[in-house]
Computed example of a mutant assay.
Amino acid sequence: MVRHIHSLRLHALGRLGWARGAIGAALGIALSGFATWTLLSGHQAHALPFLVAPLGASAVLVFCVPASPLAQPWSVIGGDLLSAAIGISIGHLIGNPWLGGSIAVGLAIAAMSAARCLHPPGGACALLCALGAGGQVPWDATLMIPIAANVLVLSSFGWIYNNLTGHAWPHVAPPPPAPVPQSTRDHVIAVLEEWDEVLDVDVDDLDAFVQAVLRRRAS
């Protein structure tokens, strides 16, 4: 029983425990909403949302998996804002929410990939904005104000919170304890090319992990 309680405590309070991510995400969303509501105080506050739903998915990535390439600052900021702009533009251009939403998500993925800021919640931003822009009461470019405020505040708090809790953000791959006799990075890249899959982890992180495992095995 004591061992089970100790295990639960480690899962909750460990370096990437669920409690750390949950607290960070809750605070990040709260601060983003408050800052955006304050920015929009006045007549605009009734016409524009102070929080957008895709921000919740961004918070999961930023605070729960801060080492992920999909959760880095440029991915969060560039991915969400670029996709939102595409969604609004396509929604107005196409008019039909179903067709506009489909095209917007596809274009957003292509644009994020080209700009090296792939961020899954960006797809949600593109779809949300395309549906709104193609609806009966079309959303316009002013929707970018709360989205930008949400994303920038969440990213700023994520930078503070992650670094204060021991996770460099933007993420920096940890150096291996000591070099192994044979370089592993080229082998890691070769295996990834053979698998022909995209893994949600940086090549340098994989290389450091493999080297650390080999070093530990040899010791």
Rank of each mutant, 00 (worst) to 15 (best):
G106E: 02
G106A: 06
A108R: 07
I109E: 03
A110K: 07
M112C: 07
S113R: 11
S113K: 08
S113P: 02
A114W: 15
A115H: 12
A115W: 08
R116H: 14
R116M: 02
R116K: 14
C117R: 10
L118G: 03
L118Q: 06
L118N: 04
P120K: 09
P120V: 07
P121F: 15
G122M: 06
G122T: 04
G123A: 10
G123T: 06
G123D: 05
G123C: 11
A124T: 02
C125P: 05
A126S: 09
A126L: 12
A126Q: 08
L127V: 04
L127G: 03
L127T: 01
L128P: 02
C129R: 04
A130N: 05
A130L: 08
A130W: 01
L131S: 07
G132D: 03
G132F: 00
G132V: 00
A133H: 13
G135Q: 00
Q136S: 13
P138A: 00
P138V: 00
P138K: 00
P138F: 00
P138W: 00
W139V: 13
A141G: 06
A141M: 14
A141F: 15
T142G: 07
T142N: 11
L143W: 11
L143R: 01
L143M: 15
L143Y: 02
M144A: 05
M144H: 05
I145R: 09
P146R: 00
A148W: 01
A148P: 01
A148Y: 09
A148F: 07
N150F: 10
N150G: 07
V151F: 02
V151Q: 02
V151E: 00
L152Q: 00
V153R: 04
V153H: 03
V153F: 10
L154T: 00
L154Y: 01
S155V: 10
S155E: 03
S156Y: 04
S156L: 15
F157N: 06
G158M: 08
G158R: 05
G158D: 12
W159M: 10
Y161E: 03
Y161L: 06
L164M: 14
L164V: 06
T165M: 13
T165K: 07
H167Y: 12
H167C: 11
H167T: 12
A168V: 10
A168M: 09
A168G: 09
W169T: 03
W169H: 03
W169F: 03
W169M: 06
P170R: 12
H171C: 10
H171F: 15
H171Q: 04
V172E: 13
V172K: 11
P174K: 09
P176Y: 11
A178V: 11
P179H: 06
P179V: 02
P179R: 14
P179K: 10
V180I: 10
V180W: 15
V180L: 12
P181D: 08
P181M: 09
Q182Y: 13
Q182R: 11
S183I: 09
S183A: 15
S183V: 13
T184M: 15
R185Y: 12
R185G: 06
R185T: 08
R185V: 11
D186I: 14
D186M: 12
H187Y: 14
V188R: 07
V188L: 09
A190P: 01
V191G: 08
V191W: 15
V191K: 04
L192Q: 11
E193P: 03
W195I: 13
E197D: 12
